[in-house]
Amino acid sequence: ENVVSAPMPGKVLRVLVRVGDRVRVGQGLLVLEAMKMENEIPSPRDGVVKRILVKEGEIVDTGQPKIELG
């Protein structure tokens, strides 16, 4: 899985990584606000952040790609 998608609709509060960052499985990639709760979205695997496809403040839909890992 190279693309991390939104598990639920919500607002991107914070992006916790930058392009080029090495990430580990379970590491937080971003914080999504859904139903007035903050949810940290974890990396599904070890890898390197290739692209960030969302911006802080953006509203995302379920299944929308957010971060691409290499």
Results as ranks from 00 to 15, higher is better:
residue 16 L to R: 03
residue 35 M to W: 11
residue 26 G to W: 04
residue 30 L to C: 04
residue 64 Q to P: 03
residue 8 M to A: 08
residue 69 L to N: 01
residue 31 V to N: 00
residue 4 V to T: 05
residue 47 G to A: 09
residue 61 D to C: 14
residue 26 G to F: 05
residue 32 L to Y: 09
residue 43 S to H: 02
residue 10 G to E: 03
residue 39 N to F: 15
residue 29 L to Q: 00
residue 4 V to S: 03
residue 49 V to Q: 00
residue 55 K to S: 12
residue 7 P to L: 11
residue 65 P to V: 10
residue 62 T to K: 14
residue 5 S to Y: 15
residue 41 I to Y: 05
residue 39 N to G: 05
residue 67 I to V: 09
residue 13 L to H: 04
residue 22 R to Q: 11
residue 43 S to Y: 02
residue 11 K to V: 11
residue 36 K to E: 14
residue 41 I to G: 02
residue 64 Q to V: 08
residue 70 G to D: 14
residue 58 E to Y: 06
residue 46 D to R: 07
residue 56 E to G: 05
residue 43 S to D: 02
residue 21 D to E: 12
residue 2 N to K: 09
residue 60 V to E: 03
residue 30 L to I: 12
residue 29 L to H: 00
residue 44 P to H: 09
residue 59 I to G: 04
residue 11 K to E: 03
residue 29 L to G: 00
residue 66 K to E: 15
residue 44 P to E: 05
residue 70 G to W: 15
residue 44 P to W: 07
residue 18 R to Y: 06
residue 62 T to S: 13
residue 43 S to A: 11
residue 25 V to T: 12
residue 11 K to Y: 07
residue 28 G to C: 15
residue 24 R to K: 13
residue 21 D to V: 06
residue 42 P to R: 14
residue 45 R to A: 10
residue 33 E to S: 09
residue 43 S to W: 01
residue 9 P to M: 11
residue 3 V to D: 05
residue 45 R to Q: 10
residue 33 E to H: 09
residue 63 G to F: 08
residue 41 I to F: 06
residue 35 M to N: 15
residue 33 E to N: 05
residue 32 L to C: 09
residue 33 E to V: 11
residue 25 V to L: 12
residue 31 V to R: 03
residue 46 D to P: 06
residue 38 E to N: 09
residue 10 G to I: 05
residue 55 K to Q: 11
residue 58 E to F: 05
residue 2 N to H: 14
residue 52 I to L: 06
residue 11 K to D: 01
residue 33 E to K: 08
residue 26 G to A: 04
residue 44 P to T: 07
residue 69 L to Y: 04
residue 17 V to A: 01
residue 44 P to V: 04
residue 61 D to P: 06
residue 41 I to D: 01
residue 33 E to G: 09
residue 3 V to G: 05
residue 58 E to C: 07
residue 4 V to D: 03
residue 36 K to I: 06
residue 57 G to M: 06
residue 30 L to G: 00
residue 6 A to F: 08
residue 50 K to T: 13
residue 3 V to N: 06
residue 55 K to Y: 11
residue 9 P to E: 07
residue 6 A to T: 06
residue 23 V to L: 03
residue 34 A to H: 14
residue 27 Q to P: 01
residue 31 V to L: 08
residue 26 G to T: 03
residue 48 V to S: 05
residue 32 L to T: 02
residue 14 R to A: 08
residue 32 L to F: 12
residue 19 V to E: 10
residue 56 E to F: 06
residue 11 K to F: 07
residue 66 K to P: 07
residue 53 L to R: 04
residue 32 L to P: 00
residue 38 E to P: 09
